[in-house]
Structure formats: C-alpha cells, structure tokens
Amino acid sequence: MRYPYLGWTGQTIGVTAPSSGLSEELHPMIEEATNRLRDRQMTVQVGQTVWTQQQAASAPVQTRADELNAMLQNPEIDAIIPPFGGERAIDVLPFLDFERIPAKWLLGYSDISTLLFAITLKTGIATAHGPNFVDMRSEEWDETTTAWRRVLATPAGATVTQWTSDLYQTNWNHAERPERYMYHLDAATEWKTIDPAQKQVSGRLLGGCLETIRHLIGTPYGDVVTFQTDQLNEEPILWYFEVSEASATDVHRSLMQMYLAGWFERASGIVFGRTAGGRTVEEYTILDVYETFNELLDIPVFYDLDIGHQPPQMTLVNGASATIMIQGKDSRLDMTFQ
C-alpha cells in the first residue's frame, strides 16, 4: 500500500466533478466551501466540470475523465475533493490513466466511492472515504467532519484515531442553516453491534457506498482477491458500507452477490453506517439483514457508525490497518498506515 500525505498549510485542493456537478442555483455552495478552505490557509482550484450538470452527470464522460486525470497528474495539486457524489462516476473508470496516478489523496463518499474503490484496488494507493467538498462550507466544522484534515496529514507508518460523534443529523434541510455548523445535529449517536460479545474488530479497511461499488463486481475494477493478495499480504478485510436509499431486500441482494463473488472469503468483519434507507419489505428489516450476514459469515457486524449520508462522518482510508472498538461514548476507530 502507498499512502499519500497532505500537509497542514499552503496546500492546494483540486475540485473536480467526475460524477455530478452543480446546477447554477447551487453554485454558492462551491463559493462558500472555497472560502472556508481559504480561511484555513489552503488554496482551491476549481475545475470547469463543477459548474455544470446535465443528464445526471456534470459533463460528457471524456471531459470528466480528462479533468480528473489532469488534476491527479498535476504536481501543484496536493489533494482532490469532488463537490459531492451523483449517479455516473462508473462511466469514468475506463478512461482513467491508472498507471500514471501518483500517491495523492482523493476524498469523498457516495458515488465518489466508486472511484476510490477502483483506484485503491488497481494501484494500491490509499483513498479516503469521507466528507465531500460542499460539506466544508460552514464557518465551523464539527469534530467528526474536521478529522479529515488529521487523517490526510498522517504520515505513512503512523496511527490516527477518530471517536464517535455525540450527535448526528437525521434529515437534510438545505433551506435553513444552523448558526455554527452546516448540519442539523438532532439525534444521539450510538455505534451498535449485532452480537454484544463482539465489540472489537480489526482488519484492512475497504468499502464505500453499497449501491455504487456493487456494480464493480465481475469487472476489472473489482478484483478484491488479487488486491488482497498483492497489496494486503492476504490480511483479512474489514468491510465498511454506507447505504443511501436501498431497501432492506436490495441491501440483502447486494451483500449476497458480494458473498457469491468471493468478496467476503477472507473478511474479519462488516461495519455499516447509519442510514435513512433500508426500507422494510414484507417485515424484513435492515436489522434482519445485518443479523442474516452475521450468522452467514460468522464475523462481527457493527452498524450505525459515523459513515455516509446521515452526517457527520468519519474519514476511512481504504487499505489502512484498522481497529474499531464499541465502548459507548468512547467508541473509536484507530487506523495505521502500514
């Protein structure tokens, strides 16, 4: 594994939209986020794809790929953070120049995790699943969101710790901004485990948005077995998933496909982010899904962690050696870049 490094000041952040861009009425989000990073002594370079959106994508696929390739290969750009996710990041994969991708952080979640997952598997370069660029537009950042800076500034060989948030946001309300933070933190956070006897799990982190990375199964961008052998020295994978909108049965089918494809053959555990999705189907609940795979795989299954579409969220590094401990308000994630 190769781990990028982002220093604390004077760094340049590239913003490009390999999935969705912003329609005109949303442009102020980019301007606000740009100002907030500049307030923190960072320079921001915004690409042209960010400002447009048509047919569920920011721009034609070649345009999106060219801009992402250019930012990845530009030595003056120290990290890349797309504005947010979307629907069509998978289009870009055949056009990426994987052999020329340097050790540079790419940070994001939702559909961006499609790219994170593929880049880590194809190159052995660590990628970061965490806040998108528009999540940084408030004057103050909560402690969980702020952790992306500590994580990306962790040198190879070192360990970084993140703790459970106190509160999380149950619903998005873009029309009303809280005074201090962007999020409406309105519910108490509690990391949970299916089996009370299983409160700690370790392994190499790998995962992303369930609804998007499942489409990489059976493609050149989803060869988990080769990645685990060549880059992880066959160490067990600690899978993490976030669910945006899928129903309980859709989550079940996706996990079963991953199981049948061999993704879980050498897994140490699965952790799920809290979700507003997971709609119950004929009395089959999202909790039933977690229990099903806890029994099928006989590995720890944790859920309602700070991952995904109900912020705030931690920054998880694909490929990092990690330990997650559930211990009430002292629950934590330790990651070592080795």
Rank of each mutant, 00 (worst) to 15 (best):
residue 46 V to F: 12
residue 206 L to A: 07
residue 43 T to L: 11
residue 318 N to Q: 05
residue 159 T to Q: 12
residue 306 D to V: 03
residue 112 I to C: 02
residue 297 L to R: 07
residue 211 E to S: 14
residue 334 D to S: 08
residue 33 A to G: 06
residue 24 E to Y: 01
residue 87 E to M: 13
residue 119 I to G: 03
residue 304 D to V: 00
residue 39 D to W: 12
residue 54 Q to T: 07
residue 76 E to N: 14
residue 125 I to A: 08
residue 15 V to F: 03
residue 184 H to I: 03
residue 82 P to H: 09
residue 233 N to W: 06
residue 214 R to L: 08
residue 187 A to Q: 15
residue 309 H to T: 12
residue 127 T to N: 02
residue 253 R to Q: 15
residue 233 N to R: 13
residue 104 K to E: 10
residue 203 G to N: 10
residue 196 P to R: 01
residue 67 E to W: 00
residue 305 L to F: 09
residue 77 I to N: 08
residue 98 F to V: 04
residue 276 A to G: 15
residue 163 W to A: 10
residue 95 F to Q: 13
residue 74 N to Y: 05
residue 124 G to A: 00
residue 57 A to E: 13
residue 319 G to L: 03
residue 211 E to A: 12
residue 217 I to T: 14
residue 153 A to I: 00
residue 2 R to E: 13
residue 122 K to I: 01
residue 329 K to S: 14
residue 284 Y to F: 15
residue 102 P to L: 01
residue 248 A to H: 01
residue 71 M to G: 02
residue 288 D to N: 15
residue 262 G to L: 06
residue 256 M to C: 11
residue 232 L to P: 12
residue 158 A to H: 14
residue 58 S to A: 15
residue 134 V to H: 04
residue 219 T to D: 09
residue 275 T to D: 13
residue 51 W to K: 01
residue 126 A to V: 01
residue 315 T to R: 06
residue 260 L to T: 15
residue 5 Y to L: 11
residue 321 S to A: 12
residue 61 V to D: 12
residue 15 V to L: 07
residue 56 A to S: 11
residue 247 S to C: 03
residue 251 V to I: 14
residue 118 A to T: 07
residue 173 N to C: 04
residue 324 I to N: 08
residue 17 A to Y: 01
residue 34 T to G: 01
residue 87 E to T: 08
residue 69 N to Y: 05
residue 286 I to V: 11
residue 28 P to S: 05
residue 116 L to Q: 08
residue 248 A to D: 09
residue 302 F to N: 02
residue 45 Q to D: 12
residue 272 F to I: 07
residue 196 P to K: 00
residue 37 L to T: 04
residue 109 Y to A: 10
residue 59 A to C: 04
residue 94 P to D: 09
residue 51 W to Y: 11
residue 243 V to R: 01
residue 308 G to S: 05
residue 149 R to M: 09
residue 240 Y to K: 05
residue 285 T to S: 15
residue 100 R to E: 13
residue 334 D to P: 02
residue 272 F to S: 09
residue 102 P to N: 05
residue 80 I to G: 08
residue 72 L to Y: 00
residue 100 R to N: 15
residue 208 G to N: 00
residue 13 I to L: 15
residue 84 F to P: 04
residue 250 D to P: 04
residue 9 T to A: 13
residue 144 T to M: 08
residue 12 T to P: 08
residue 92 V to A: 08
residue 57 A to N: 06
residue 3 Y to C: 09
residue 314 M to P: 05
residue 186 D to Q: 02
residue 10 G to I: 02
residue 306 D to H: 00
residue 333 L to C: 07
residue 98 F to A: 06
residue 257 Q to S: 14
residue 278 G to D: 14
residue 163 W to C: 10
residue 254 S to F: 13
residue 66 D to L: 06
residue 233 N to V: 02
residue 296 L to W: 09
residue 174 H to M: 13
residue 251 V to H: 10
residue 32 E to T: 07
residue 40 R to A: 01
residue 295 E to S: 14
residue 254 S to M: 15
residue 336 T to H: 04
residue 329 K to V: 04
residue 193 T to M: 12
residue 302 F to M: 14
residue 158 A to Y: 11
residue 143 E to L: 10
residue 64 R to C: 04
residue 133 F to E: 10
residue 272 F to D: 11
residue 62 Q to I: 02
residue 318 N to R: 00
residue 116 L to N: 15
residue 210 L to P: 01
residue 123 T to Q: 03
residue 68 L to N: 05
residue 254 S to H: 15
residue 43 T to V: 08
residue 84 F to I: 03
residue 58 S to L: 03
residue 269 G to K: 02
residue 219 T to H: 06
